[in-house]
Amino acid sequence: MTRSIPGIEDAQTLAQAIVDTIHEPLLVLDANFVVLGASRSFYEIFQVAPRQTMGRLLYDLGDGQWNIPALRVLLETIIPEHTAMDGFEVEHDFPSLGQRTMLLNARMVVYETSPNSTILLAFTDITARRVIEREKEDLLERTEELLNQKQVLLQEMQHRVANSLQIIASILMLKARAVTSEEIRFHLKDAHQRVLSVAQVQSHLHASGGVDKIEVGVYLTKLCASLGASMIGEDQPIDLRVTADHGMIGSDKAVSIGLIVTELVINAIKYAFPTPTANARIAVTFVSDEDDWSLSVFDNGVGKVGETAPGLVGGLGTVIVQALVKQLDARMIVDGVGGMRVAISRIRAPKLDKAA
């Protein structure tokens, strides 16, 4: 059961106490925009006295500082039609405060027992908020500009690196054709293929428009296609295929994996099929699960001969592969039965449950 306030004076006292308690500046206006009441915070913030405020037209307060066109639109047009308005933003240069951005909330109070109406007008100073927002916008614009500049520089760097690698590969091939020593020619061609493998990932990074992560399957497919086109001859056709999921990996790790695949595929092409073999094939498989991944290169060639895997033990390629596997924090297993399979995997150790 609600209790009414005994007298009108008590009601006015309570109303004024409520107004003074509000932290934000608040004005109470009549239908003609004359000030009927003001909160204590209004006097403090706008540095005016009650005698300069009470009973005066809002637009005349503070030598006309509230005679703002946007405020007139709010009070004279919007409020009569909608009786309420929240978040009406006004920017004005107040003599005592300087340039300020105010958020206005207005309510028209209509009484059941009186034809008169009252307007409640509350102010929130959001100047500091708007300054911070503009600073954030400026910072974001500058950050985007710097990122764009960085991207342009990275693309230019990638382009130059790719061109340099292509030049080095061409020089190595020219030297390989010019020398008379078969051993030197062999090593120069090996170096040529290794440079091409690095150039391939640079080319893929440039095409993908980024340097953070690339899709391994697409990269390995392009890499193996390039290796097959340059190394598989008509006298021994080899079906070289790549099977991979859509896993993404950092470009630095992609370079290492690409070099490993290059070494193993070159090794298989050179040594797996010493005599013409029907249905010769090399299969490259990559599977990933977040940070875990596994890579295998399999051929259905001669496999191990005695205790030795042709081309895989003791050569420079082996040293390179082993070093790259260690760099990737992975492990390698070689199986030379029924062909040659080299499996490389990186599996994280499962986290132990502390509560167990």
Results as ranks from 00 to 15, higher is better:
2 T>H: 13
17 A>G: 11
24 E>G: 06
24 E>W: 07
26 L>I: 12
27 L>F: 04
32 N>Q: 10
33 F>S: 12
34 V>T: 15
37 G>H: 01
39 S>W: 04
40 R>K: 14
42 F>V: 07
47 Q>V: 07
48 V>A: 08
50 P>Y: 02
51 R>A: 14
53 T>R: 00
54 M>R: 10
61 L>I: 13
61 L>S: 01
63 D>L: 09
63 D>S: 12
68 I>F: 04
72 R>C: 03
83 T>V: 04
84 A>Y: 11
87 G>A: 05
102 M>E: 00
106 A>C: 13
107 R>V: 01
112 E>D: 09
115 P>L: 06
118 T>P: 06
124 T>Q: 14
125 D>V: 03
127 T>I: 05
145 E>P: 02
150 K>M: 09
155 Q>H: 13
163 N>H: 15
170 S>H: 11
173 M>C: 11
177 R>I: 07
182 E>D: 12
184 I>N: 07
187 H>D: 15
190 D>N: 13
196 L>G: 12
203 S>W: 05
207 A>F: 14
210 G>V: 08
219 Y>V: 00
224 C>V: 02
225 A>V: 00
232 I>A: 06
251 S>D: 06
255 V>K: 08
256 S>A: 14
259 L>C: 10
261 V>L: 04
272 A>E: 12
276 P>F: 02
279 N>S: 13
280 A>L: 03
284 V>E: 05
284 V>C: 07
284 V>W: 09
286 F>M: 06
288 S>A: 04
289 D>W: 01
289 D>G: 05
292 D>R: 02
292 D>V: 00
293 W>S: 04
296 S>K: 11
300 N>L: 03
301 G>W: 02
310 P>H: 00
314 G>N: 00
322 Q>S: 11
325 V>P: 00
327 Q>H: 15
328 L>Y: 06
333 I>Y: 07
333 I>F: 08
339 G>I: 04
341 R>K: 13
344 I>Q: 01
346 R>H: 15
347 I>A: 12
352 L>N: 12
